[in-house]
Design a protein around this nucleic acid. Structure first.
Length: 546
DNA sequence: AATAAGTGACC
DNA sequence: GTTGTGT
DNA sequence: ACACAACGGTCACTTATT
């Protein structure tokens, strides 16, 4: 526990990649597999679900420290983090626990989850007796299900690659296969032998970058941007950007599996697709999109598809209500040969060959390429995206290999221009972490019969400087409070951008937005010039019919 | 038993 | 998914 | 350019509270 706490503090203390990397390498070099595998689980895998509720933790801490609950709530409000607050208010201890990390799980965390209430209090007190302040902080995060630390998977992979002198891609591939926090699995993941990888694991996905991503790109026009950055249209392959779930379909002898982008095994949700495996040559891996597909031969909304995911009740799989297709767009492996280094155009040709034989399969299709003569031509076709129920266009360099992760340059997404609407800021809430001291979380409203009706929240889109301005306004123009929420004088107007909208009964306005964000402050507009709910309803109606 | 709140997957 | 910041 | 942090909403499911 002391080494892991040290690692946590080190990772938290810096934003420098090199320092994080060193901290990770030192840690993994110094701990035995029993502990290393738990650390690995915490850093790249799933954080433990909570073993005790905040309410109960607060109460037990209050009993031990003698600090009343209301005061703890105040401290929590000021500090912004309950684990930290409780670590600080408990009677100080300078003992430092040497209990190894795996025993923290087996002797504290697991029992805590299964114990009854009095035993939970006993266990917690026992742990507090042994841990120092920093260890308590980490421990609280572990047991309350809020453990998070500032490293992402990639960095951990790099650290392990450095330790083992293996290619990061190999580590990545091994981590993609199912593993459990056991010393054996840990040794396998760190095995210096290159081919100890699991054939059931998906390849790391290649992700596209949005075109014109940086706000300060001097070129503001999409067509100019394409001409400048992608140059010759004939070097590029265009496809529709489907609104579905990215997935790899892996077919091994007597085994077909489907993996999502988050490396989740989702085969069980789509048995129709597992059945496709039998039609493919052994050891074939397809990359593509699972899309809900109407009998009108067009995509259904994403939310329909989502209903097929995470289902426990297998008897109600909605096969007929929500039919699906796998639209393949890449071939990563064929008959055991890894094709990722081959040019995109070649992989495409082979993919079409394989799927041509299966043209009658209703659940399988090749995502068609879009013929286009010029960028202008493609822009015109893109304008039909909403009508086709797709999200825009994908552009892939014909000569490029299949890369891993969000590598820039070869795969681009050119999404449809977002919808926009001008709305009034009416509530605000504090952010968390780096933004704990500022009001960064905003609720927006539209006019409806002379009344402002809240319809969405948005956080992203403002720079720190703009946030400070808005925060200042909120502090000076608060009209009331409800718990952590401040009511704000309805004076600021923002242009809200979003990708789509649908009816929803979770919101008073009856409509929910997809990917809402602030595009800009409308200082030129007064609140009464903001849009109405009627405008939004009209957009909703329009989006269903065009 | 019914409802609310939380979690984790997808986008 | 989107976005802004820091290195 | 990249990694990271802080956020939006849905759905299905689980756990806590009434």
């Amino acid at each position: 526990m002391h080494r892991f706490t040290r690692l946590f503090i080190d990772l938290d203390a810096t934003t420098r990649t090199s320092e994080k990397l060193t901290a990770l390498e030192n840690y993994f070099r110094s701990v035995p597999p029993e502990d290393g595998v738990w650390a690995l689980t915490l850093l790249v895998g799933k954080r433990p679900r909570r073993a005790i509720s905040h309410t109960e933790m607060r109460r037990i801490a209050s009993e031990r420290s003698g600090i009343p609950l209301w005061l703890i709530a105040e401290c929590h409000d000021a500090a912004g983090d309950l684990s930290e607050t409780l670590a600080l208010i408990l009677p100080e201890s300078d003992r430092c626990s040497l209990r190894p990390l795996h025993r923290v799980f087996s002797e504290w965390l697991t029992p805590l989850r299964n114990a009854d209430e009095p035993s939970r209090a006993l266990l917690l007190n026992e742990a507090w007796d042994e841990l120092d302040t920093r260890q308590r902080l980490v421990f609280h995060k572990l047991i309350s299900g809020s453990f998070r630390v500032g490293v992402q998977r990639r960095l951990v992979v790099r650290a392990l690659a450095n330790i083992t002198a293996l290619d990061p891609a190999i580590i990545e591939h091994r981590l993609n296969a199912p593993w459990k926090p056991t010393p054996d699995d840990y040794r396998r993941i760190l095995s210096p032998h290159e081919h100890d990888s699991d054939p059931a694991a998906p390849y790391p996905f290649f992700l596209a970058t949005p075109i014109r991503p940086s706000a300060n790109d001097p070129i503001t026009d999409d067509l100019r941007w394409l001409e400048h950055h992608l140059a010759d249209p004939s070097d590029w392959l265009a496809e529709w950007k489907w609104d579905g779930i990215r997935a790899q379909l892996i077919h091994r002898p007597s085994l077909t599996m489907l993996w999502s982008r988050g490396e989740e095994h989702i085969t069980d949700a789509f048995p129709e697709l597992r059945a496709l495996g039998a039609l493919l040559p052994d050891n074939t891996v397809l990359d593509g999109e699972i899309v809900a597909w109407s009998d009108q031969d067009r995509p259904l909304p994403f939310s329909d598809l989502q209903r097929r995911l995470n289902r426990k009740q297998r008897d109600l799989m909605l096969f007929d209500d929500i039919p699906i297709r796998f639209l393949a767009y890449d071939l990563l492996e064929l008959e055991g040969r890894d094709l990722r280094e081959a040019p995109t155009a070649d992989r495409r040709a082979r993919l079409q060959n394989i799927c041509a034989r299966l043209a009658s399969e209703q659940h399988l299709g090749v995502s068609p390429t879009i013929d286009f003569a010029s960028w202008e031509d493609l822009a015109e076709q893109r304008a039909a995206s909403r009508a086709r129920a797709v999200e825009g266009i994908m552009l892939k360099r014909k000569s490029a290999p299949y890369r891993s992760g969000r590598a820039r340059g070869d795969w681009w997404k050119w999404k449809i221009d977002p919808y926009t609407i001008d709305a009034v800021l009416i509530y605000a809430q504090r952010g968390s972490g780096r933004r704990a001291s500022l009001f960064t979380d905003y609720t927006f409203a539209l006019w409806d019969n002379g009344e402002l009706v809240p319809f969405t929240k948005a956080y992203s889109g403002l720079s720190d400087a703009e946030i400070r301005e808005v925060d200042d306004f909120i502090r000076k123009h608060t009209t009331g409070r409800q718990g952590p929420i401040r009511m704000v004088e309805p004076r600021l107007v923002f242009e809200i951008g979003f990708e789509g909208l649908r009816e929803s009964d979770r919101h008073r306005a009856g409509i929910a937005l997809r990917f809402p964000r602030m595009l800009r402050r409308r200082t030129d507009k007064s609140p009464d010039q903001a849009d109405t709910l009627e405008t939004l309803r009209a957009l909703l109606h329009h989006s269903r019919t065009d």
